[in-house]
Design a protein around this nucleic acid. Structure first.
Lengths: 342, 342
DNA sequence: CTGAAAGCGCTTACAG
DNA sequence: CTGAAAGCGCTTACAG
């Protein structure tokens, strides 16, 4: 029982013109339409409360004006922010968006991508899990419009938009050093699935140690599954020489760290400096406020849409590239030894 | 350039059967199909990497297996949680979801609903703004499947799922009283658009004052636009008799309150007790941890989907109702005078 | 300036 | 057990 079963034929009859002419009207091709005809059609549409059926239109035009977005894990606040930007930008361009959350499971991701293709989306923006090389490859081969976000997939030639992760870690380490913290550890979620940002952030940590001429201690690199992370943090602080500061690789590792700190009465800032990647919503109101390395989520989302829409534009087919965006640091109290006064 | 331009005709030719038979296969109607035919079709589908075009299917079947969700304001964490539940539940039932955010603007809401109808969604779940009575009414009249969430619309006969807001405030007030706070104020976002939960929460505050035999002070009721809220909070604390505790009506008012508190060095718990409606993600890691009144977001979303899907089921057309869900309190340190020790 | 006709890719009653 | 045909609601080249 749809709200409106009026079709273009009804309107045509009511206005005493042909379907073709009504279609011209709907698509605003008034070039050759008599004023009087136009008015009649307008009136008929109003009277019948007609609304065109977009499914029929899509079938004929072979375009749904819909983009599928498949996000590896929507729990990261960064993902949410990028998605908002993507939606806004797509909306501006009269595209609808269908969001799917793969929950970090390649099988789910695959199912979603196939469903979206079945629904004839015009393009895909994917935060890829790392488990569907074959599918990505076939999308690339068939020249289907696709853009990756947050993670690239090696051996693939697809437009990708992501953070300069190495720079992000260097920013964090440099800032902590400048604030008097020397022994710096990194904490991030599991590397099991070879997720690009995590890998690059660990790599960035290593190169930062070298660049700033600090000893590289493997026991300062904690890349753990969420379920065992608190335990790992515990071990970190039981080391003979516990770290003076922590770089948290993302919001999930941050959450675990904050829980640990709260339970063990550790004072962030005074006892241990903290910088975390990603500007989370509560960074400013946390006590003490958290120094973050912000990703330009809005720009990243916008760029992804831009790259995708570009593919629909005629023949200008650029060579796919990886686009790196610069992080920025938002300095608050958590990285200040005298900061946590509250 | 879709990934796969193979159609049912191609498969039919390849398998040397008719389109009808392929269609039977796709829809798993094997009743009268010879084993051998089935195998031939299966093979053809694999070889051609055929994927059915759902747009064509939808046109024929007059059903898109898609539900539109229009949320008044996605910035409320409660909305996000409910939406996740809705998506999960719909997914289980093989429906896709299209989410739209009305940004509290009735005009946007209207545009989205119309777009969704044009895209032939099978039903709508709406967190209604309060500005489209006419549209809601016409949806109701045309018997289009729709469920409201979080807010009801008066004079309308539509299934609605929402919190027992009065109970929520009573829980908060009672808890604060039990913990020794006497003068309790309520802080919430603007009532300008007559948004149901806010109205009911203010109303709940009034009835709580009566129930617990407390004097009702109008200057303890702060219902303000976000842009002037901090100022309003300031005024609250400059009163001759400032409140000892605050009930925050939602996560946005909470944010403003926490900012104020942080800037003015007020100690939550010791100086002013706090209970906030909605279980926000950082409640547990805030310093001090925040006592919240949780909405059963998951159940609310699930119920909304259930009610909607029920409408597709044959003839069992129940009379539309309002379903109220019970809040629960999650006690943490922000409502404890001796709590904020950290 | 407007209409008749074909076709987008499916599904489904019906005939055989 | 399988196929031919009609039709879902649009759009568009083409004819007039």
């Amino acid at each position: 029982m749809p709200i409106n079963k009026t079709t273009i034929s009804d309107v045509a009859k009511h206005a005493r013109v042909s379907k073709s002419t009504v279609s011209q009207f709907i698509n605003e091709r008034f070039d050759y339409m008599r004023e009087e005809t136009r008015e009649r059609i307008e009136k008929a549409i109003k009277e019948l409360n007609y609304q065109p059926n977009n499914v029929a239109r899509s079938l004929k035009l072979k375009s749904t004006a819909t983009i599928g977005v498949v996000v590896a894990n929507i729990l990261h606040s960064f993902s949410t922010q990028v998605i908002r930007a993507i939606e806004d930008k797509l909306n501006e361009n009269d595209f609808s968006t269908i969001i799917c959350n793969a929950d970090d499971e390649p099988a789910k991701e695959k199912k979603y991508i196939e469903t979206l293709l079945g629904r004839q989306v015009d393009g895909l923006i994917v935060f890829p899990t790392s488990g569907n090389q074959g599918l990505y490859k076939s999308l690339e081969d068939s020249n289907f419009p696709i853009v990756f976000v947050d993670r690239y997939v090696s051996d693939l030639n697809v437009d990708t938009v992501l953070l300069d992760n190495e720079k992000a870690i260097h920013l964090a380490v440099e800032h902590l050093l400048n604030n008097g913290y020397k022994d710096i550890a990194i904490l991030t979620t599991s590397l099991e699935n070879a997720v690009v940002p995590r890998l690059e952030r660990i790599q960035g940590y290593r190169s930062a140690m070298e660049r700033f001429e600090l000893p590289l201690r493997e026991d300062y690199i904690k890349s753990l599954d969420l379920s065992v992370m608190k335990n790992g943090i515990s071990k970190l602080f039981q080391l003979e020489k516990p770290p003076q500061a922590i770089v948290s690789g993302n919001d999930l590792s941050l959450m675990e760290f904050l829980k640990y700190v709260s339970e063990h009465n550790v004072k962030i800032g005074a006892d241990v400096g903290l910088v975390t990647i990603d500007e989370i919503p509560y960074a400013g109101i946390h006590n003490p406020p958290l120094t973050t390395i912000a990703q330009p989520a809005f720009e990243i989302g916008e760029k992804a849409v831009e790259l995708l829409l570009h593919k629909f534009d005629s023949n200008k087919h650029n060579q796919p590239k990886i686009y790196r965006f610069d992080p920025s640091i938002i300095v608050r109290k958590s990285s200040e030894k005298a900061g946590a006064k509250l």
